[in-house]
Amino acid sequence: MDYSLHRYRSACGRLDLVARDYPARDYTRTGPAPVLLLMHGLTRNSADFEPLAAHLSDTYRLIVPDQRGRGLSQWDPEPANYRPDVYAQDMFALLDGLEIERACLVGTSMGGLMAMVMNAVRPGLATGFVFNDIGPVLDPAGLARIQGYVGPSEPMASWTAAAARCRAVNAVAFPDYGKAEWLAFARRTCRENADGTVSLDYDPAIAQSMAGDAPQTVPVDLWPLWDALDAAPVLVVRGELSDLLSRETVREMAQRHSGPYSHVEVPRVGHAPILDEVSALAAILSFCKEYLD
């Protein structure tokens, strides 16, 4: 997969941020290729979407940012800025700088919260929405689990050790993964240091945004943001084993949405699907073909 690194300034003008730009090299139809903005979860980065990009990048232009404090993007010296409304403003700066007026918003976990915030601030931006294991109600069990692992940690001695740590934290979500899958997972979520040790690829200070009973990463009442999506095409992907997005919430999401709505549940996967699973990928490809082509 070929992509270029697009460097841009954060909305506040203080940080250097980076996004991958996959140019849809095989797109042959008249006009520019449809754009998808892929937004990762709390402790992830742009590499999280590599498995999905392998299936979409020939046909669609993919913009895949490292949010501030992750991947190649600069860490914010003010941890209070690690929250969805600030990230959303960074996304507007990214799209405006690339002169992209409309895009399908694909959000995993925190990225889905960002998509809802972006729609509330700039209605009409999105050609559609794909929510990956996220909705207007976040199960306290899932939040507590995330709070339990996010934050400072010691460097790991090797990639094998990094894979073991990823397994220890995420085995509940991917019970069928083997050694190869955990190593690939580690390669997407960690970075190698100059001394050969391996660290998680995010600013540990993002943990501050998840602290307490009412994390600032999560707006207090998300249903108004969901209702504001109105008639837009929506696909919801839920992991069968998810402890963050319940089936009850998914049912209410469907009932409260007046426009095109589809939902897929990924077997034997928790929070959050990688999106290259057979059922998830089929649903996403069908969604893109119907609403973006």
Results as ranks from 00 to 15, higher is better:
5 L>P: 00
5 L>H: 07
5 L>M: 06
7 R>N: 02
8 Y>L: 09
9 R>D: 07
11 A>G: 09
13 G>I: 11
18 V>I: 11
21 D>S: 10
22 Y>W: 14
23 P>K: 14
24 A>T: 10
24 A>W: 13
24 A>H: 11
25 R>V: 08
28 T>N: 04
29 R>Y: 04
29 R>F: 03
30 T>V: 13
31 G>F: 05
36 L>N: 05
37 L>V: 06
38 L>A: 07
39 M>A: 02
43 T>N: 04
49 F>P: 00
49 F>M: 02
53 A>S: 11
53 A>L: 02
54 A>D: 05
63 I>V: 15
63 I>M: 05
67 Q>P: 00
67 Q>V: 08
68 R>K: 13
70 R>I: 09
71 G>P: 06
72 L>V: 02
72 L>C: 07
75 W>A: 06
81 N>A: 08
82 Y>A: 00
83 R>T: 00
85 D>T: 13
87 Y>L: 14
89 Q>V: 02
93 A>P: 03
102 R>T: 13
103 A>E: 09
105 L>V: 12
109 S>T: 03
110 M>P: 02
111 G>R: 14
111 G>L: 12
112 G>Y: 12
116 M>I: 07
118 M>D: 01
120 A>H: 12
121 V>T: 11
122 R>T: 01
123 P>L: 05
125 L>R: 15
127 T>V: 07
134 I>L: 09
136 P>D: 07
136 P>M: 09
137 V>F: 10
142 G>R: 14
143 L>I: 15
143 L>T: 11
152 P>E: 14
152 P>M: 05
154 E>W: 02
160 T>C: 03
161 A>T: 10
163 A>C: 09
164 A>L: 12
169 V>G: 00
169 V>T: 15
171 A>E: 13
171 A>H: 14
172 V>K: 11
174 F>E: 00
175 P>M: 12
177 Y>L: 06
182 W>N: 06
182 W>M: 08
188 R>Q: 08
198 V>E: 04
200 L>T: 06
200 L>G: 00
201 D>L: 05
202 Y>K: 11
202 Y>N: 04
206 I>S: 01
206 I>Q: 01
211 A>F: 01
213 D>P: 04
214 A>V: 09
216 Q>R: 15
220 V>A: 13
222 L>P: 01
222 L>Q: 14
223 W>I: 09
227 D>Y: 01
229 L>M: 11
232 A>L: 11
235 L>S: 05
240 E>I: 08
241 L>T: 04
242 S>L: 11
248 E>H: 13
257 H>M: 11
259 G>P: 12
259 G>E: 10
261 Y>F: 15
261 Y>Q: 07
262 S>E: 14
264 V>F: 11
267 P>W: 12
270 G>C: 03
272 A>P: 00
274 I>P: 00
276 D>N: 12
277 E>F: 07
281 L>S: 02
286 S>A: 15
288 C>G: 01
289 K>L: 12
290 E>Q: 14
291 Y>C: 02
293 D>P: 04
